[in-house]
């Protein structure tokens, strides 16, 4: 059981020697994401020599550097393209990507769309903090309307990406969103995501006190974390309110971030289909050769 995993042993096994403490700011949520990933790895009994990590650029993309496993820290937005390459070269590897909202849905948006559409077998842990944290707080495509950033000093007027809805529509096999302060749900989702043979997206809402919270007057670390608590709602509760609630109850939940598991389907991933294709062509070739003799 998760609760009984010994943190000391976990740190020794999964953290790269001498790399901690992280570069993350005080109160940044990103650090918890890989603690959760370790617990999911541990519960699955993954052999870390059979795991390959990938990331792009950003605070969130620094995570593989702290983990005792092989990984590619790639170009901004290109984590999924590199991850696809690793999987193509060695389909036996379990691929886990750590990326940010800017990295994955801003500059890397097209890679994201196509990796999800092709249902490539990888688990993407996307840390959404509504902002480009590393470069000082430019507007990300995930920022809620009204967000203040260095590039939207008067408030954001652009509609935000709903990453999970997008992934769902693209047919990703596993799609979930959780706030970072609830440990057990993300751990379970990372586990389920890795077990799923297709494209798995786990979006974790991760507070960035430095570049987002401070500028948006969401207060100190504790009140920023609390803001997430007040502005998220379980998908089941949301649907219940929308189906059976009064007008006021509907209004109260409308603007909140729905969290939960949005999609979990079993279907063949890209490389499974690719393997079948290769087998089909070989069989046909053999038949043709056999016929010619």
């Amino acid at each position: 059981m998760t609760a009984m995993i010994d943190a000391e042993r976990l740190r020794k096994k999964y953290l790269r020697d001498g790399m901690l403490p992280t570069i993350f700011c005080n109160g940044c949520g990103h650090g918890a994401a890989f603690d959760y990933a370790f617990r999911a790895f541990e519960e699955l009994g993954l052999d870390m020599d059979k795991v390959a990590l990938a990331s792009g650029i950003g605070c969130s993309s620094r995570i593989p550097g702290y983990i005792n496993a092989d990984g590619l820290h790639t170009a901004h937005g290109r984590a999924l393209a590199f991850a696809t390459g690793i999987k193509a070269a060695n389909p036996d590897l379990t691929i886990v990507v750590f990326t940010g909202d800017g990295d994955c849905t801003g500059i890397g948006g097209n890679h994201f769309i196509h990796a999800a559409r092709r249902n490539i077998d990888m688990t993407v842990i996307l840390l959404n903090n509504f902002i480009y944290g590393m470069t000082g707080g430019q507007l990300a495509p995930t920022a809620p309307i009204g967000s203040i950033s260095t590039t939207s000093p008067y408030g954001n007027i652009e509609q935000a990406f709903n990453i999970c809805e997008l992934a769902k529509a693209l047919g990703a096999a596993y799609v979930a969103r959780w706030p970072i302060f609830h440990p057990y749900q993300p751990i379970k989702s990372i586990k389920e995501g890795i077990q799923n043979k297709g494209f798995s997206l786990i979006e974790l809402l991760s507070p960035c006190p430095t570049a987002y919270g401070r500028r948006n007057k969401l207060g100190e670390i504790d009140s920023l974390w609390k803001w997430y608590e007040d502005n998220t709602i379980l998908i089941e509760d949301y649907e219940k309110a929308m189906d059976y609630g009064t007008e006021e109850e509907k209004e109260a939940v409308r603007g909140k971030f729905q969290v939960g598991v949005f999609q979990n389907v079993q279907k063949p991933g890209f490389f499974e289909e690719y393997d079948k294709l290769v087998q089909r062509i070989i069989a046909k070739e053999d038949e043709r050769k056999g016929g010619a003799e």
Partner: peptide, 15 residues
């Protein structure tokens, strides 16, 4: 309950 260990973003707590 281990909540502190789990949510500490800096791996600093062991219960």
């Amino acid at each position: 309950c281990k909540l502190c260990e789990l949510i500490c973003p800096d791996f600093a707590v062991t219960v």
